[in-house]
Design a protein around this nucleic acid. Structure first.
Length: 439
RNA sequence: GCCCUGGUAGUAUAGUACGGUCUAGUAUAAGCGGCUGUCGCCCGCUCGACCCGGGUUCAAAUCCCGGCCAGGGCGCCA
C-alpha cells in the first residue's frame, strides 16, 4: 500500500484535549487505530495517541468518497491522521465524536499482530517483551512510564534542592569497583575493560571536590540471577555526601522517599487508578531495626540464622509479612558488607551499613564509608582484593578525602513498589537478564 | 549454577491422570459477507496449531529418553 505523506499535517490537539465545547471546530488528530467497529452504514474507529483515545465516526452515506475508501483499508494498529470536525453528541462516551473530512494512512501494520492490542487476550511476559514497543502502547504501560518519569523528576528535584550536584561517572572501567558482583568484560582497544557495576568509588572521590553528589544511570552485573527482581542492566540512583554518617544519609533517604511517594500520589492519580494501585505516603521517621534485632525476630518465627550470616530470601519474605512497609535494617555484620563500608569503632564486627527494605525487598543500600586509607587497605585484603588494583582510588585518600556516607537505590525496585508490579521486567522498557539480550 | 513446572493456530487456553470418534475444542486476532449508534458491538462463513530429535506401541498431543525454549523458586547479588 502507498503511504500518504504527513505533508503539513500537525497534531492540533492530543486526543485527551478534545472536548464537546469544540463542537464544529476542525481539528487534526494523529495516532493509531485501536478498534474498528463497522456497523454497516456507520463505522466507528477508536484512535489512540500517547494520551488516550477518541472516537472517529464515519456515517458512510454522509462522508466523501475518499474518506470512505481510506476507511475501508484501515486495520488495527495502522498509524493514521484524521482531519475532521468535532461534533457534540450524547451518543458518544465522551460527549463528542470526530467526523472525518480526510484520512491519511501514515504507517501500516502486519496482521495478525504478535499480540492482541485490544486487551481481550492477554499475552505472557515473554511474548510481550518480544514485541515490546507494541506492548508499551497499552494504557497500563503508558501509565507505568509516566510514573517512571515523575519518579525520576521527583528524585532529581529533591536532591537538587538539598544541594546535591548531578554527576556522571564512567561506565567503562579498568578494575572492579567492589568485590561481590561479577563484571561484564569489554574489549577496550587492545586492553580488557569492564562495564561498571556501580559508581561507588567515583562518587566517593567526588565528595572531595563537590561535597554532595548524585548520579542516576545504568549499571551492569554479570550475575546469573534468575529471579523477578534482578537484571543484568539496571538503573541506580546514587548519592554521596561529605561530612556525613549513615545516620545523616538515612534521614536524607527517608525524606527523599517521602517526597517521591507524596509527589506520585499527587501527580499520578490517573496512572495509579489505571494500575489499580495505591501509593502510601510513609510516616517519618521510618522504622529502624538492627540486624541483631531482625535475627531475634526471625528466631521467634522459627527461623534460626547464625549471627554473621546473610539473611536468605525466604526469611526476607517472612519479614515482609511482619513489616509490610518501609523499614531500615542497620548494623549489619562488617563481614557481610563491601570493603568500603565502615566498621563501628567500638564494635568492629558491626558495620555502619544499612539497607532500606520495602516489605521483603531491598530497595536501597548505604552506609558510612571507610575514609582511612590504612583501614581501607586492610579491608580490601580481608575481602581477598588486591590493593594494587585500587591504587588510583587509594591515591585520592592522600588528597584530603572527607569523611562521607551515601546510598544507592535501585530505580526498578522503587518502581515495583510504586506501581505494584511483581516482575521487575514489567518496569523496564527493554530488560536485560541472564537469557534476554533482544530486543 | 541447582530445583520445580510447563511448551497445542498470531495471542491466550481446553484436551495429557488411564494412548484409540482429537478429523485437536474454545476465545480473541486475521479473511469474506451482512447490519445506522457501537463502545469487549452483533450475526454467519472461512483460514490457522500439538517445540525439536529419538524410542515404546497395532496406534502417541498424551508414555519414556535427550535437546532447546519459557515461567517460577533457590543460590549468587542489589
Amino acid at each position: 500500500m502507498q503511504l500518504d505523506p504527513l505533508g503539513d499535517w500537525r497534531k492540533t490537539l492530543h486526543t485527551t484535549d478534545v472536548n464537546p465545547q469544540l463542537d464544529g471546530e476542525v481539528i487534526t488528530l494523529l495516532g493509531w487505530v485501536k478498534e474498528i467497529r463497522d456497523l454497516g452504514a456507520i463505522e466507528f474507529i477508536i484512535l489512540q495517541d500517547r494520551k488516550g483515545t477518541v472516537q472517529i465516526t464515519i456515517p458512510k452515506k454522509k462522508v466523501n468518497k475518499k474518506v470512505l475508501e481510506k476507511a475501508s483499508f484501515l486495520q488495527l494498529q495502522y498509524c493514521i491522521g484524521v482531519k475532521g470536525s468535532v461534533k457534540k453528541t450524547d451518543m458518544a462516551q465522551r460527549g463528542f465524536e470526530v467526523i472525518p473530512d480526510e484520512i491519511r494512512i501514515l504507517g501500516i501494520a502486519q496482521h495478525p499482530l504478535p499480540l492482541d492490542i485490544t486487551g481481550k487476550t492477554s499475552a505472557g511476559i515473554d511474548t510481550r517483551l518480544n514485541a515490546r514497543v507494541l506492548d508499551l502502547c497499552k494504557e497500563n504501560n503508558r501509565a507505568t512510564w509516566n510514573i517512571q518519569h515523575e519518579t525520576l523528576a521527583a528524585f532529581r528535584r529533591f536532591l537538587s534542592q538539598r544541594g546535591f550536584v548531578e554527576v556522571f561517572t564512567p561506565r567503562i572501567i579498568a578494575t572492579a569497583t567492589e568485590g561481590g558482583a561479577a563484571l561484564f568484560s569489554v574489549d577496550y582497544f587492545d586492553r580488557e575493560a569492564y562495564l561498571a557495576q556501580s559508581p561507588q568509588l567515583y562518587k566517593e572521590e567526588l565528595t572531595l571536590c563537590f561535597e554532595k553528589v548524585f548520579e542516576i544511570g545504568p549499571f551492569f552485573r554479570a550475575e546469573e540471577s534468575h529471579t523477578r527482581r534482578h537484571l543484568s542492566e539496571f538503573i541506580s540512583i546514587d548519592i554521596e555526601q561529605a561530612f556525613a554518617t549513615a545516620d545523616d544519609v538515612m534521614k536524607i533517604l527517608e525524606q527523599t522517599i517521602h517526597y517521591v511517594c507524596e509527589t506520585l500520589s499527587k501527580n499520578c492519580r490517573e496512572e495509579l487508578k489505571v494500575l489499580k494501585h495505591e501509593v502510601d505516603i510513609p510516616k517519618l521517621p521510618l522504622k529502624r531495626f538492627t540486624y541483631t534485632e531482625i535475627l531475634d525476630e526471625l528466631k521467634r518465627e522459627g527461623i534460626d540464622i547464625p549471627w554473621g550470616e546473610d539473611i536468605p530470601t525466604p526469611a526476607f519474605r517472612t519479614l515482609g509479612e511482619l513489616h509490610p512497609y518501609f523499614y531500615f535494617i542497620t548494623e549489619w555484620p562488617t563481614e557481610s558488607k563491601p570493603f568500603y563500608i565502615k566498621p563501628l569503632s567500638s564494635r568492629p564486627e558491626v558495620s555502619e551499613g544499612f539497607d532500606l527494605m520495602w516489605k521483603w525487598m531491598e530497595l536501597v543500600s548505604g552506609g558510612t564509608r571507610v575514609h582511612s586509607k590504612s583501614l581501607l587497605m586492610k579491608r580490601l585484603e580481608e575481602q581477598g582484593l588486591n590493593p594494587e588494583s585500587f591504587k588510583h582510588h587509594l591515591q585520592v585518600f592522600d588528597y584530603g578525602l572527607p569523611p562521607h556516607a551515601g546510598w544507592a537505590a535501585g530505580l526498578e525496585r522503587v518502581l515495583m513498589m510504586l506501581t505494584g508490579k511483581k516482575n521487575i521486567r514489567e518496569v523496564v522498557l527493554f530488560p536485560r537478564d541472564r537469557t534476554r539480550l533482544t530486543p
